[in-house]
Computed example of a mutant assay.
Amino acid sequence: MTKKKMVIFASGRGSNAIALHDAVENGTINAEIKALVCDIPGAPVMDRAREWGIPVILADRKSFDSKAAFEKYILDAIEPYQADIICLAGFMR
């Protein structure tokens, strides 16, 4: 069975992202994590993703003048990863 491509959206310490990563690693979830999107600069979850060798996309909401611009940035940034699954793991936007 082909692995699904997953992008995780997270904002904080990353406990939900860690659980997803662990489930992928142990085969409970048949997926490959392609990227992590975070909206909080300096959030610990970004360091975790980097440790796992997963690209990090920082989308700091305060850097955009509108919700539409913020959302477009994220969509454009994740498009190359061709995600089959997007997991909101503590991402509250």
Rank of each mutant, 00 (worst) to 15 (best):
I8P: 01
I8L: 13
F9V: 06
F9N: 03
F9S: 04
A10I: 03
A10D: 05
S11Q: 09
S11M: 13
S11I: 09
G12W: 04
G14M: 08
G14Y: 02
N16F: 05
N16K: 06
A17I: 03
A17Q: 02
A17F: 10
I18H: 07
I18K: 06
A19E: 12
A19T: 08
A19Q: 08
A19L: 15
L20M: 12
L20W: 00
H21K: 08
D22Q: 09
D22V: 10
D22G: 09
A23H: 07
V24I: 13
V24W: 02
E25F: 06
E25I: 13
E25L: 14
E25Q: 11
N26I: 12
G27T: 10
G27F: 04
G27K: 05
I29A: 13
I29R: 05
I29Y: 03
N30I: 12
N30K: 10
N30A: 14
A31K: 00
A31D: 03
I33D: 00
A35L: 15
A35G: 07
A35E: 11
A35V: 11
V37F: 00
V37K: 01
V37Q: 00
V37D: 01
C38D: 05
D39M: 11
I40F: 09
P41Y: 02
P41I: 15
G42M: 12
G42P: 05
G42V: 13
A43C: 10
A43R: 01
P44M: 11
P44F: 01
P44V: 04
P44T: 04
V45Q: 01
M46L: 15
M46P: 02
D47Y: 03
D47F: 04
R48T: 06
A49P: 00
R50W: 02
E51C: 08
E51K: 06
E51W: 00
W52Y: 04
W52C: 09
W52Q: 11
G53Y: 02
G53H: 02
I54S: 06
I54D: 03
I54Q: 03
I54L: 11
I54P: 07
I54Y: 00
P55W: 01
P55Y: 01
V56G: 01
V56K: 00
V56I: 08
I57W: 01
L58H: 02
D60K: 06
D60F: 03
R61V: 10
F64R: 02
F64L: 12
F64P: 00
D65L: 15
D65K: 12
D65M: 15
D65R: 10
S66R: 00
S66M: 04
S66C: 09
K67G: 08
A68T: 10
A68C: 03
A69H: 07
A69W: 00
F70W: 11
E71C: 10
Y73T: 08
I74G: 01
I74R: 08
I74Y: 03
L75C: 15
D76N: 13
A77P: 00
A77I: 13
A77M: 12
I78S: 11
I78M: 11
I78C: 12
E79S: 15
E79C: 15
E79T: 10
E79I: 14
E79H: 08
E79R: 11
P80Y: 09
Y81P: 06
Q82I: 14
Q82C: 15
Q82L: 15
Q82K: 14
A83N: 14
A83C: 14
D84R: 09
D84W: 04
I85D: 15
I85K: 08
I85N: 05
I86H: 09
I86R: 13
I86E: 14
C87V: 15
L88C: 12
L88M: 15
